[in-house]
Amino acid sequence: MKTIEEINAIKAKMQAQLNMRSSIDNAGDTRIVVGMATCGIAAGARPVLNAFVEEITKRNLKNVKVTQSGCLGMCKLEPMVEVYVPGKEKVTYVKVTADSARRIVAEHIVNGNPVLDFVIGNE
């Protein structure tokens, strides 16, 4: 059995990193919003959301927040993901998989180039 006590070690590491960050400004955060209604979940949104979280951890990206929304009304295009980069237009991705989520982090979040293969209209 693993216990929650191990969290203390992770906490110490997080506190050190937090002190190094020059600003903790939520308004400057990039937001990745995953559709998590019944339609999204049935289409595979859960592994997509977790792939985003994992890729962000792996790349040690700060100021990137993963969150959820409800149904956007286009259930057949789920899993749908909206990416809000401050100062840029919102990008909507459709039929996202865990693999495409990792590509979106690399190409869009890190390099600033939206992945046109997965944007709405190109599905």
Binding site: K2, T3, I4, E5, E6, K11, M14, V53, E54, T57
Partner: peptide
């Protein structure tokens, strides 16, 4: 877990990864 974290966000990727593993 929130008590242990003393205000640090539980949704931090590092914490989430540990919760999943545990």
């Amino acid at each position: 877990i929130k008590r242990l974290l003393e205000g640090l966000p539980i949704e931090s990727p590092e914490i989430v990864a540990y919760i999943r593993e545990m």
